[in-house]
Design a protein around this nucleic acid. Sequence first.
DNA 1: AGTGCGATTGACT
DNA 2: GTCAATCGCACTA
Length: 200
Amino acid sequence: MKPLRLLARRDLPADTATLARWLVGKTLVRDSSEGRTAGTIVETEAYVPGDAAGHAFIGRTARNDSLFLRRGHAYVYFIYGMHYAINVSAEHAGVGAGALIRALEPIEGVELMRARRGTQRLTDLTRGPGRLAQAMAIDRALDGVDLCVRGSPLWLGHALRDTGELATSVRIGITKEAARPLRFYERGNPHVSGARALRT
DNA sequence: AGTGCGATTGACT
DNA sequence: GTCAATCGCACTA
């Protein structure tokens, strides 16, 4: 396997939508006491500055504070009383925006992911924001973590393979700003979510 | 102090 | 295809 190399913050595009597109193909790595899990990012959504669908729209609060950090930090939120999901903070410090990571293709630690998820099927491990958070043991304890430093429990790595065709669609599960084409995914990848939510 | 709901998922008809 | 689970948080009062 190719070695996992940390992405430098200067490599991250400052613009939120550009960042979300660019993240498809990169690697998300989780180092925990249980071991390492990692996956190729295959689906993201952009929540841009001033976006009424974004969690930062209401202004900076204790919950969404991490969205306002300099790009490359984790914003982890709790939703529906049972699920966590992770964003990569975007833009400059003080601007509330982020890229939601919606799906991964597992690369490393698949057995650990299976144990955490309580299921065997490979495409059930990290297809969807809640599932991937569970597979990677991501919760509010990781909120605000810097994804661009060595030794972080959660970090971003370079692409480990060529990325397939990038596709674009509207975002899933929102009602405001629902027509904006801000979801990005690798076309045809079986780990991409959204089959229920979208016909395309 | 009470209310309503959400960037989802899994179980079930 | 439909729907309940489950709770932190923003908002109203």
